[in-house]
């Protein structure tokens, strides 16, 4: 008897059959995620088109108009050197995005490669890589960054100086790159272990899922199993983690700037703006409030988006 079973839980209409399109449909229904996405898109827009949006140059000082409260001319007021805070926040967005994207990309590259190798090839790679991961994670983040900065900054600066003397190549005179290089490098150094662990765990668990065995039993090739069965199932958590990681990287960069081991003034960064603002917050709260609010907003937006993606990428989630 082949009676058709009717499952009342299932709607009768035919729907799109593509994972990504389905995920988008589900994401659209999640208000918080859309809010997060909106903020992220807005911030990205600001970061990209920053120079065309700012009414003032972020460096131009107007000593006549120091520490002004927010006004039409200066939306977020001015700081102790009379620089337009709005413009600096906008440029800070560029820094934040640059740091977040570059750091996450480097960390992702290191993390996924090591994690996939560890998960797929097992011991001895697994053992060595996991040892390395644990080692990195066991060193306090700030300590590592401070050590890297303190120990490498002077030697690199000196080396660049001698290079400049020898070659007169203007590239070596631009010391701002040392900052970026060290900040990006040291942040990536502390950010990759979670990605490595995640990818390893994903590969390990998916490799042992019955549907992988089932796919092998169908005689499918390893490449197809990898692309159609392992990757789509592993990607969800990774995308979520990256989305959250971008937010974390922004906060991290601000924290480092705040502590003086991040991007150095005069390059605007939310962190060093907060750091500066904190000293005078009783008298000029807007100097602290503006960058802090934007940082908070960005961080919250990324985490909402991450959560939303997590739900959206799981077909079992809300219908």
């Amino acid at each position: 008897m082949t009676l058709v079973e009717t499952n009342p839980a299932v709607g009768e209409e035919d729907r799109p059959v593509n994972l990504w399109r389905d995920a988008w449909h589900r994401l659209k229904r999640n208000k918080l995620a859309i809010f997060g996405l909106g903020i992220v898109v807005l911030l990205a827009f600001v970061a990209i088109f920053g120079p065309y949006l700012t009414p003032h140059d972020f460096l131009s000082q107007d000593l006549q108009a120091r520490n002004q409260a927010p006004s039409l001319a200066h939306l977020f007021g001015t700081d102790d050197l009379g620089r337009d805070v709005f413009s600096r926040v906008v440029y800070g967005t560029r820094t934040a995005f640059l740091v977040a994207i570059v750091v996450t990309a480097i960390a992702l590259l290191i993390g996924t490669t090591l994690g996939a190798v560890a998960g797929f090839f097992g011991d001895p790679y697994d053992r060595v890589i996991m040892w390395l991961t644990d080692m990195t994670m066991s060193v306090p983040n700030l300590l590592l960054v401070v050590v890297i900065n303190a120990s490498l900054k002077t030697p690199i600066a000196r080396w660049m100086e001698t290079q400049y003397m020898a070659t007169l190549n203007p590239f070596y005179r631009e010391t701002i790159w040392i900052d970026f290089f060290l900040v990006f490098g040291s942040m990536a150094m502390i950010s990759w272990p979670p990605y490595a662990r995640l990818v390893r765990a994903q590969v390990l668990s998916i490799r042992s899922r019955p549907y992988i065995t089932a796919a092998m039993a169908l005689g499918l090739s390893n490449r197809i199993i990898m692309m159609r069965y392992v990757v789509p199932n592993a990607l969800g958590p990774l995308i979520v983690s990256v989305s959250a990681g971008l937010g974390t990287a922004m906060v991290l960069e601000s924290a480092f700037s705040f502590l003086g081991v991040g991007v150095n003034p005069p390059t605007p960064s939310w962190g060093n703006m907060i750091s500066d603002g904190l000293r005078v917050w009783q008298h000029h709260p807007h100097l602290l409030a503006a960058p802090a609010a934007v940082l908070g907003l960005a961080s919250v937006a990324f985490s909402f988006l991450g959560d939303g993606l997590n739900d959206a990428l799981n077909p079992r989630g809300t219908k």
Partner: peptide, 24 residues
């Protein structure tokens, strides 16, 4: 040769039909 079987599936909890739940 063949087992006799009950067609269909039990209703999901909370999605029971009106009347006798076994009627369908």
């Amino acid at each position: 040769a063949r087992l006799s079987s009950i067609g269909g599936t039990p209703p999901e909890p909370g999605r029971r039909p009106p009347g006798c739940p076994f009627a369908p």
